[in-house]
């Protein structure tokens, strides 16, 4: 445990400095829309996995999977955003760390790592669908498209789980 601390600290340092000018995101696509997650939260990128269904779980939870001996809960981001299910094609997942627990976010496609300048950042447009606004942490204006920042914490705030 203690051995890990220094490396973590050095990892964090440049990110904090860079935050002023630009931030790095892993991009992904769902139903043609580009999303991004801060790169530091990303643990892994996975192809299609064998997922165990969890009965009685909120509909957004696709199930659990075994990631190198760790049990990871898979969230179907499409369901979370109120989008229709994927028609065919392989899915991909981004494994994100939240509060020491890993969650696998199932998306259509994972893109690349992008460094985005703070100048291109904008708050959510007020007209955005409420379901989306809830999980979006703002928008980056790219040259030919828009990138929505996903707030993992809010993404994981599922209604059924909150109500319980």
């Amino acid at each position: 445990m203690t051995d890990n601390l220094p490396t973590k600290a050095t990892n964090k340092l440049p990110a904090a400095v860079a935050e002023v000018a630009s931030r790095e995101f892993v991009t992904m696509f769902i139903a043609g829309q580009m999303f991004g997650i801060p790169v530091l939260q990303v643990q892994d990128v996975l192809g299609p996995q064998k997922i165990t269904r969890v009965p009685l779980a909120p509909p957004e939870v696709a199930g659990s999977l075994n990631l190198r001996g760790r049990i990871v809960t898979a969230i179907d981001v499409r369901v979370r955003l109120g989008l229709p299910p994927r028609d065919g094609g392989k899915d991909m997942s981004i494994v994100a760390d939240h509060g020491g627990e890993f969650y696998s976010l199932i998306v259509d496609q994972v893109g690349e790592v992008m460094s985005l300048p703070a100048a291109d950042y904008e708050k959510n447009p007020s007209t955005l669908d409420e379901r989306w606004r809830e999980v979006s942490d703002g928008i980056y204006r790219l040259k030919d498209s828009l990138l929505i920042i996903l707030d993992v914490q809010r993404l994981l705030r599922l209604e059924a789980a909150v109500a319980a």
Binding site: K50, T52, V54, P55, L56, A57, P58, V61, G63, S64, L65, N66, G69, I71, V72, T73, G99, E101, Y103, L156, L158, A160, A161, A163, A164
Partner: peptide, 24 residues
């Protein structure tokens, strides 16, 4: 079980079986 599934009182935990799959 993961915090977002902890409200399901029917499960006391989960585990990984010999074949690598997760079961509740």
């Amino acid at each position: 079980v993961s915090p977002i599934l902890r409200h399901i009182e029917l499960f006391s935990g989960n585990t990984i079986l010999g074949d690598g799959s997760v079961v509740m």
